[in-house]
């Protein structure tokens, strides 16, 4: 599909060829609804040359697990993509009773490889586009180094604060799957609900305007939170989960043996999410926890290594 994506770095498509003038004070009369905010970000990043992808169809804990981030960050190819990814964090569930915590929420993820020189400005432009006036609000880049033990990945960057609230994780990936990034990719992860609560001045996520016709976030998701929290914490059959974990791990290795890194990676994500569910069920002891993380990391690293090898990229 992405013929242009195969160009070596330095030739072909250039991200910055079609820059919009950045609006300093956008004339936004009414705060953006949740969906309008997503559409605005899609437009913004689409206009800047990003592929607009759809969410990955497997449960995952963060947008970083999407193959468009993890696998595509590997290797020398130019790659610019943006997408929304639903994130599942079973232990963060609060039965719909906490106004800030959800076991299922959305991240907006932008991945740009190589990281463009004006990434910070591009990012600030996106904030302006969704209605954050930097003449009125205090935007700060506060040190926050990112590490994903389950992906064997780390990077340096910041959490971006807007009036003291973390709204985005901004990272220059240095390693993924244990491999040095060549070249480095820049990753922006917007916390969509937080940003929306900020823009719409709401104290509870459930009060967010989902659209401009009066549908709230709570109407869409509150019941999901209640039921899923109950299932995550109380109902999920742990023997089934242990079984699923084991089978996903085995299937991952099966795929690796067949030199199929992408299906292998999918199984690693499944194992990772199953592990998260087991954690929520409280059946993994502190000592075991490290072993599970290590196991998932080995699977993910194996998939990344196979992906590199299949593409003929040296570590």
């Amino acid at each position: 599909m992405l013929a242009w994506g195969r160009h070596p770095v330095g030739t072909g498509f250039r991200l910055l060829d079609r820059l919009w003038p950045i609006r300093q004070s956008p004339a936004v009369t009414q705060p953006l609804s949740f969906q309008r905010m997503i559409l605005t970000l899609h437009d913004y990043w689409s206009d800047r040359g990003c592929l607009i992808l759809q969410p990955y169809d497997i449960e995952m804990g963060a947008g970083t697990f999407h193959t468009a981030t993890t696998l595509r960050a590997l290797g020398p190819e130019r790659w610019n993509a943006a997408f929304v990814q639903p994130c599942r964090r079973p232990t963060d569930g609060r039965y719909g009773e906490n106004p800030n915590r959800l076991q299922h929420y959305y991240q907006y993820q932008v991945i740009l490889k190589p990281s463009p020189p004006d990434l910070q400005d591009l990012y600030l432009g996106s904030l302006a586009a969704i209605g954050i006036d930097t003449g009125l609000h205090d935007i700060r880049f506060v040190e926050d180094d990112w590490e994903s033990p389950t992906l064997g990945a780390w990077g340096l960057g910041w959490e971006v604060w807007c009036d003291g609230m973390e709204v985005t994780q901004f990272t220059y990936f240095q390693q993924m799957g244990g491999f040095d990034m060549k070249p480095v990719a820049g990753e922006l992860t917007y916390g969509l609900e937080r940003l929306a609560m900020y823009i719409q001045n709401k104290d509870s996520v459930y009060d967010l305007a989902f659209n401009d016709q009066g549908v709230t976030y709570g109407e869409v998701f509150l019941e999901n939170e209640r039921q899923m929290s109950k299932w995550n914490f109380e109902i999920a059959d742990t023997e089934t989960l242990f079984d699923q974990f084991r089978k996903a791990a085995a299937e991952c290795e099966n795929c690796l043996a067949a030199d199929l890194p992408i299906p292998a990676y999918e199984q690693a994500i499944k194992a990772s999410h199953t592990f998260n569910l087991l954690q929520a069920r409280g059946v993994i002891s502190v000592a075991e926890r490290q072993a599970y993380i290590g196991r998932v990391r080995d699977l993910a690293k194996g998939a990344c290594g196979a992906y590199m090898a299949k593409n003929g990229w040296a570590a």
């Binding site: 770095v9 190589p114 990281s115 020189p117 180094d145 340096l156 220059y172 240095q174 040095d180």
Partner: peptide
């Protein structure tokens, strides 16, 4: 204490390292 690579030059791991991109 911690430094990083960035941008197109980072296609080589020998590219300049700085605390954050140097502009």
């Amino acid at each position: 204490p911690k430094s990083m690579r960035w941008g197109a030059a980072s296609a080589s791991t020998e590219s300049l390292r700085w605390v954050r991109p140097l502009h």
